[in-house]
Nucleic acid binder design. Sequence first.
DNA 1: TGACCTTCTGGTCAGCGCGACATTAAGATG
DNA 2: CATCTTAATGTCGCGCTGACCAGAAGGTCA
Lengths: 258, 258
Amino acid sequence: MTRTSLLPASPSSAPVEASPADVTRVAVSTVIFSVRREDDDCPRLVLPLVRRTRDPFEGLWALPGGWLDIAENLDDAASRTLAETTGLTASYLEQLYAFGRVDRSPSRVVSIVYWALLRADEVDAQVAAHAAAGDAPENVEWFPAADLPTLAFDHNHIVEYALWRLRNKVGYSRIAHGLMADAFTLADLREAYEAILGRRLDPANFRRQVEKSGTLVPTDEFRTGSHRPARLYRPHQDVELADRGPLAPTAPHESSTP
Amino acid sequence: MTRTSLLPASPSSAPVEASPADVTRVAVSTVIFSVRREDDDCPRLVLPLVRRTRDPFEGLWALPGGWLDIAENLDDAASRTLAETTGLTASYLEQLYAFGRVDRSPSRVVSIVYWALLRADEVDAQVAAHAAAGDAPENVEWFPAADLPTLAFDHNHIVEYALWRLRNKVGYSRIAHGLMADAFTLADLREAYEAILGRRLDPANFRRQVEKSGTLVPTDEFRTGSHRPARLYRPHQDVELADRGPLAPTAPHESSTP
DNA sequence: TGACCTTCTGGTCAGCGCGACATTAAGATG
DNA sequence: CATCTTAATGTCGCGCTGACCAGAAGGTCA
């Protein structure tokens, strides 16, 4: 419950656990995306990384994560390690892939990687809350997803795959709503799509698609800015961000053979 | 290399390995689909299951699989355990999901599950080859995917999810080609789609879609039957069954940070 | 105040893909 | 030779989409 381990570390740094030389260990990491407006420029896709403080790849940036506990579900481990290392709580969490190449780490580690979204307004809010509480996470920094440094392990490749999945999923689901605050304009949502897809979208056509989908509820409020005020929308309650199929959102592997 | 272990077994049956009571072990299983024509009826989606011979769920049917070796990539483990338990070699193999609920097994087991396709003509061919060689796999039986018995562990749920992924993927990729022999008619391919999707497709519209996709090469041969002969097609060489994105088909986690 | 700019919002139009359906071709069967 | 079944081609209408236009509604600045 109160583990303090960070990422897959060197063999010598795991005193209690069995010798990594002959055991396959399971780690859990998370690629968590958010959008942030740089200056007055267009919003960009960003993700938090953690600087490693232990031997394999010490000093390099890596995905937030940690070891899987013996009595912990995979989803719970992803949420826990993400919170422990970055102090963040995701608004959407989904398993990405299990990476297990023998040569991806000095010791044998299978990483169950999740990808997640964080509401744009929660980035600053959660960071500020932790700063006020005095438990601000250390060695955490946000990077633009399109311009990352060389990361530890195969994490560059993992982020590349997570981006690919996100760009795919944004096309056939309402997943981008997970980046939005409670109320937002269609321009906000469109800019999130543009940040993910890396190309501009026609505002009129975008509006048509969203309205037809029925996933948004218009409010009577408007956001006033430099120009004509824009109507604020809220996400429809009964619409899931994505169709998980037989994998239930909260308890993924249930329902069969009790 | 010459392991003979079958599925995740009871603690007492793993003498050399560390005690399962305090270690999370990694298993690999595979849901492998094929199509078989029942009688002169329409083809159906079938999959092979293995009857368990050890304690947890002994006697129940389960997915083919086994333990991950310490120096073995995940993909290799899926191929190896599939061959060891069923004698089959898949024509397409893709990671499905990592299942790791604490309560899915008496001991803590994280299962990296793959899903695969087997060419219809290879089902009988591979079985016959093993029978001739005297190493026919035991306790293996094919079941219709739509009508399975109660399986061990959470395997019913896993098959359900694999079916969902297959039905999804068949809509936006050429994955169904992995079920076809070297040469096949459009009716063969359409019936595979129908078996997967569970509904009839219009032959004319199906032909139009396939021809436009450019994934098939018409031959000069025809299959003669009870009615007008049907032209035989071959899959286009340069067309992958599915877009894996940054995950290369043979060596999934490479290319980054050398 | 009024000209001008930018964004929001609604609308039109052509092209494409797809489902539904009609029609002809070609071999097997009796 | 009539008939049946499947193979293969063609036609039509609908809905979605991208490109584009036009008015609405606020600011900004001379």
